[in-house]
Design a protein around this nucleic acid. Structure first.
Lengths: 221, 221
DNA sequence: AATATTTTTTAGATTTGTCTAAAATTTTTT
DNA sequence: AAAAAATTTTAGACAAATCTAAAAAATATT
């Protein structure tokens, strides 16, 4: 039912999916940047994916995954996030070390492996970065999460996810002692640089720059 | 130190290693059969591996892995067998289902992953088929094992490994209730077809054909 | 609305790993 | 030792995935 795809095809589909999710629409240039490839290469692959009916695409137009394409994307995301969970919970990786390894593991094709791994991990709903793990039907739990910049003052909230998995972001969070599950409340906002001061229980207040705050999502308690 | 290799290169190296181990020497045709490729393709790759100094090769001669090539082979075998152990012990796969999945997992490149997996599994010495797992330096335990055809009568022995991992072999063993660790003794040998009758404790005697016996290795107790 | 700029696509080349068909070499048989 | 057979290599082609450079289309600017 799910056709055999090359690694390149899988990576295109996954990245198109992520762009669709965050930006709503996708164009050639953005995808090229994201994949570290030239726009000409993107066009080539888009045509292949169209032939395989995984992508709705007309030259010079924006494009999006077909139903079938989205299904495949979700199955890759599922694998990626399950492996990340495994690496952190079972193999004691740091949450900032797992992304690259999971990029490889997500392409292992055995369906049975994924289902058995899921069971072994006891069907987790969120990965170590707070992102939801699709179940075997592609369904995900939605967290009612809010960007840190949108939190009112003096309301307890719990960090639920981070906006991206760059090592640099995760390194900074580690330094500031913030991780998924950390409880904090916003104390002040500084208009000059849009930085935010947050307070974690039993700790000194911490300053969060605007770019960092935008990469942090929390669940009000 | 270990260069980045393509999946194809890794597969060639691994298969050359296995042929070296079982047959002593390697030639183009055998390797072609083993890899399901044409001899011409083999020659092409042999030349590439020679350039990378992973293979000692002169046209029309037999060839063998260099020191460096053997190191790489052992690191792949290590990964393969650790993953097989993981699949059987942690994910509850049957021992006859793991080979193909491990063929994919063995190419995941993270060194850290392998070491953490090894620790998680508690540094196993043998995989589910009884084959030794190289440690991080490439060292393996040797089992003093004997082919079943060479066992004398009425001597207790324990099955330690199987000669190959074909689904067909493993299916047959399952049917005969034989697995790694099974204790048995040879009761009779029939010259007509070289079949062997073995006795497992509390069970009816079982007949083992010659090809099957040759694929079974045991440790005398 | 015409021009300039940006984005996207096409055309043609390159690398990797494979193939077929033919040539070269080695091994076996007579 | 010559002929036959088997093995191995070379030569040339192909598909996948990428690239560069140039052309085409869409978008933005004046």
């Amino acid at each position: 039912m799910i056709p055999n795809l090359t690694r390149a095809e899988e990576n295109y589909i996954k990245n198109i999916y992520h762009l669709q999710q965050s930006a709503g629409s996708v164009n050639t240039n953005e995808l090229a940047t994201m994949l570290g490839a030239k726009p000409a290469s993107i066009t080539d692959m888009l045509k292949k994916l169209k032939v395989k009916k995984l992508l709705q695409y007309e030259p010079y137009k924006e494009f999006c995954l077909s139903i079938q394409g989205k299904k495949i994307a979700l199955s890759i995301v599922r694998k990626h996030r399950l492996w990340e969970y495994f690496l952190v919970e079972k193999l004691q990786f740091g949450w900032d070390e797992v992304h690259e390894v999971a990029e490889e593991l997500e392409h292992v094709s055995s369906k049975k492996l994924v289902e058995k791994l899921d069971a072994f991990l006891n069907y987790p709903h969120f990965d170590p970065h707070g992102d939801p793990i699709p179940d075997s039907n592609g369904k995900m739990r939605v967290q009612q999460q809010v960007n840190l910049v949108d939190m009112p003052f003096n309301k307890q909230a719990e960090v639920t996810s981070v906006g991206n998995q760059s090592t640099q972001l995760l390194e900074l969070l580690k330094h500031k002692n913030i991780h998924i599950g950390t409880r904090l409340e916003v104390k002040r906002k500084f208009g000059f640089d849009n930085s935010i001061e947050v307070k974690i229980r039993n700790m000194q207040p911490v300053t969060i720059s605007e770019p960092l705050a935008k990469a942090l999502f929390v669940k009000p308690l």
